[in-house]
C-alpha cells in the first residue's frame, strides 16, 4: 500500500477525518499513555479556576498523534522519514478535526508533504510537513 512516485503529482491531496466531537476521555487516554499528566488536559476544575481557560484542552501531541494516523494511512507503515508540526490553535473537547496532506515534491524516492489539520470552524490547529519513502 506504499505510494508510487510515478503515480504522485504535485498538488495531490489526501484527507481524513481525525475525530468527531472529541471526548475528554480521549484526553485522559492520551495522558495515561504518553505520561503527560498536565492537569490542563484532564482537570476541568484546575484549568477553569486556576489556569483561566474555558475548559480542559487537548495535548498538542494528541493532535499530532491523530494527524500521524492520517499520514501513515496515506504513505504506508514504516515509510515516514520526517514529520514536524507547529501547534497553531488549541483543540477543545467537542472539536471535529480533519487533516490533509498535500504533495509538494517527489524526488529521489521521497515524497514531501505539507500537512494541515483544521477544526470544524476551518481554523488551522496544526500545520507542518512530512517526508516519506515512496516506491518508484
Amino acid at each position: 500500500m506504499a505510494l508510487k512516485a510515478s503515480q504522485l503529482k504535485v498538488g495531490d491531496t489526501y484527507t481524513e477525518c481525525l475525530v468527531e466531537d472529541l471526548k475528554r476521555t480521549q484526553l485522559v487516554m492520551y495522558a495515561g499513555t504518553s505520561g503527560d499528566y498536565n492537569p490542563l488536559h484532564t482537570d476541568e476544575i484546575f484549568t477553569t479556576k486556576v489556569a483561566g481557560y474555558p475548559s480542559v484542552f487537548a495535548h498538542g501531541m494528541l493532535t499530532m498523534g491523530m494527524t500521524g494516523r492520517m499520514l501513515t494511512n496515506y504513505v504506508g507503515d514504516g515509510r515516514l522519514t520526517k514529520y514536524g508540526v507547529r501547534f497553531t490553535s488549541q483543540v477543545w473537547p467537542g472539536d471535529t478535526l480533519h487533516s490533509t496532506a498535500t504533495v509538494e515534491s517527489v524526488e529521489d524516492g521521497i515524497v514531501n508533504l505539507k500537512v494541515e489539520t483544521r477544526n470544524q470552524n476551518d481554523a488551522v490547529v496544526l500545520s507542518g510537513y512530512a517526508a516519506a519513502r515512496v516506491d518508484s
Binding site: V50, A51, G60, M61, F87
Partner: peptide, 13 residues
Amino acid sequence: GGGGGGGLHAEQH
C-alpha cells in the same frame, strides 16, 4: 502550565 499562563507546546519535529 500553572496558573496565569504557563508552558505550552509550540512545535514538535
